[in-house]
């Protein structure tokens, strides 16, 4: 039995009196694609943002490679990590946002080379060679010298995926990566993600794309009301859901497709 790449234990998150996550346990195996689905407000995105501590969990721990994220032992005392210590852990987890969040004042190529040069401290030339390779993979090599506002949403999102990959992460987090896109642009982003999954990247994907979840996910998680209601192989979960809430959600989303 190998240690999972990512492990979440008893994770809770509240914003004031509002409990968004109410005890989450989850394991992500190396090389697996885990899709998290569920109705709006179920806490999917908050869970994803707790994994790399963009939100600090109220309680509970996230382990990456068996090492706790955001906290560290010093003797018998547990300390919060400083921002810059946390930054070192965060580079192991790439993240793709719903709103892309590319740096608008830099070209696509500069967006991709920025972190390798600053954080991995490799030479600009080497970073550019690597970046062009990644942009080739996501089909954006021809747009390397464009600025983000010059690009369509789908192109921006593919560039953002390349930017995350440039840090050679162990794991990629996708926070509703196609939700801000025009319908005709969703396909190109999903195709890149499919390719990434085929190449063996470990991925955690919060999504509303049930087709993608069915075809690509190794593990499907259904969340509602801040807890995991049900999880398992997508084929099982989609065809034989056990819980009423899963059934209700699936009948809603699958009928609209």
């Amino acid at each position: 039995m190998t240690e999972p790449l990512l492990k979440v234990e008893q994770l809770r998150k509240s914003f004031g009196a509002h409990d968004v996550l109410r005890g989450i346990d989850l394991a992500v195996k190396r090389g697996d694609v885990t899709c998290i689905v569920g109705p709006s407000g179920s806490g999917k995105s908050t869970l994803l943002r707790c994994l790399n501590h963009l939100e600090t969990p109220t309680k509970g721990v996230v382990f990456l490679n068996g090492v706790p994220v955001g906290v560290r032992w010093k003797g018998n005392r547990l300390y919060q990590m400083s921002f810059n210590e946390l930054a070192r852990q965060r580079q192991r987890m790439g993240m793709v946002f719903q709103a892309f969040n590319l740096f608008p004042h830099k070209t696509v190529l500069e967006n991709v080379t920025e972190a390798p040069i600053l954080v991995r401290r490799i030479k600009r030339k080497a970073a550019e060679v690597e970046a062009m390779d990644l942009l080739e993979r996501v089909g954006m090599a021809e747009r390397a010298n464009y600025y983000p506002p010059q690009l369509s949403g789908g192109q921006q999102q593919r560039a953002a995926i390349a930017r995350s990959l440039a840090m050679k992460p162990d794991l990629m987090l996708f926070d509703e990566p196609t939700s801000a896109l025009d319908p005709e642009l969703v396909g190109e982003v999903l195709a890149v993600m499919r390719q990434l999954a085929d190449d063996g990247m470990t991925m955690v994907v919060v999504t509303h794309e049930m087709g993608f979840a069915r075809d690509v996910a190794d593990h499907l998680v259904f969340m509602d009301g801040g807890v995991i209601i049900e999880e398992g192989a997508p084929a099982d979960l989609l065809t034989h859901p056990h819980h009423e809430r899963t059934k209700a959600f699936l009948s809603r989303v699958l009928n609209t497709v």
Binding site: A87, R90, A99, E114, A115
Partner: peptide, 22 residues
Amino acid sequence: SSGQTEAAATLGLTRGQTLRRV
């Protein structure tokens, strides 16, 4: 936008680098 800070954070940029470069 705060998304810029978050994107920089997930790439592993330090606080100073985020401020100066982004």
